[in-house]
Design a protein around this nucleic acid. Sequence first.
DNA 1: TTTTGACCATTTTGTTTGAAGGGTCAAATT
DNA 2: AATTTGACCCTTCAAACAAAATGGTCAAAA
Lengths: 208, 208
Amino acid sequence: MVQVTHCGDNTIKINTIICAAQKRFGLYGLEKTTMSEIARDVGISKASLYYYFPDKEHLYKKVIENEQEAFFELIEKNIKETSEPEKMIRKFMAIRLNYFRTFFNLSRLRLEDFRHMKPVIEDVLADFRKKEIASLEIILKQGVDTGLFFCENTYESSSLFLEMVRGVRSLLFHNKDLMYVEQEDYDMLLDKMNKITNIFIKSLKIKE
Amino acid sequence: MVQVTHCGDNTIKINTIICAAQKRFGLYGLEKTTMSEIARDVGISKASLYYYFPDKEHLYKKVIENEQEAFFELIEKNIKETSEPEKMIRKFMAIRLNYFRTFFNLSRLRLEDFRHMKPVIEDVLADFRKKEIASLEIILKQGVDTGLFFCENTYESSSLFLEMVRGVRSLLFHNKDLMYVEQEDYDMLLDKMNKITNIFIKSLKIKE
DNA sequence: TTTTGACCATTTTGTTTGAAGGGTCAAATT
DNA sequence: AATTTGACCCTTCAAACAAAATGGTCAAAA
């Protein structure tokens, strides 16, 4: 989109913008953050912001995509450190939950965004779901190959498991009408995630 | 609350009111149903309604309690027809889902009530959860006693399983922003419930 | 004991209005 | 040519206010 002329200055500037946006979005959420504020933080005019990003949603999307990228790199790295599928799943879930916490705990308002979810966010979230299903599927297949797990449809199992986990999480916030995640809630969530993971792993060890 | 004088006339009248309220609430939900409408349906004045029920929420609570009662009677009756715990769980889930459908499908608006849930409804719903956990726990214990299931904490397992199921259901509506349950959604839900039930039952068959 | 019309207080709804924020652009700056 | 910007437009949002609706009360009547 932006051609580099003199040097990589643009990349640096774009990164600066993304960082500033990340802070604002993380602190106040999508709706409560204005483009003027981000511009002010960076030290440029609002119009300049629109020179680098077509609109607010694209900027937001970029921020989230960056965070997701870091998450999947972490997953990949940690998964390769062990050869036991069961431990892999547990590690996967631990990282996932931690990501969730840092992702949401930054802001009391951020959760609100997901009530009336914008199409752009929905896209990037759907993409995230696809990727995390794929990650888990790899682990399951490895377990099946080594004869430790029995699973006819790894995709179905992965997506259903993650849906269960997401569902329980969503319930916790939906019920409590929370705008931010407290330590207490995080602990409860961690406990439940572990128990659900146990159930899931057990079910993988049975044939038929 | 209401003393009977001449005969059981009051009981009949109260039942008439509850039925009328049930129709209205089922059709339009709590918030979109007015006390005047219910009174009109019954053929009495609004003030008379308040002679029998202290307020709107108590009337609503009574309606829901009636429906719940019928549900648990059905559960109990059907459970006793089989001696296999596994089949019991499946039957339990089938009835539960069906109850859910009739309970919600009556109204496109009824789901909306559960977004900003009133304290009264929360009470009656919490009560429902307790009861359904107890029902499921009985089945699990029976499975443990006959050596078919392995489960150290039947309460924990029951509540977690039902929470998973509730979570997935809640996700389906939350995501789709549905105000009413279509056949298609019901089928998808049924499918997922069955798969989650499979996972749960498998996990019950493993020791440790 | 039961019923009701009139009444009150609060909530909801509709409307208006002024400010704020997303987004554009021609002109200026580098 | 690549960037930057102040001024500008248009839509959305929020406060404010008024009007209608609704939950709930009560004295009087049946």
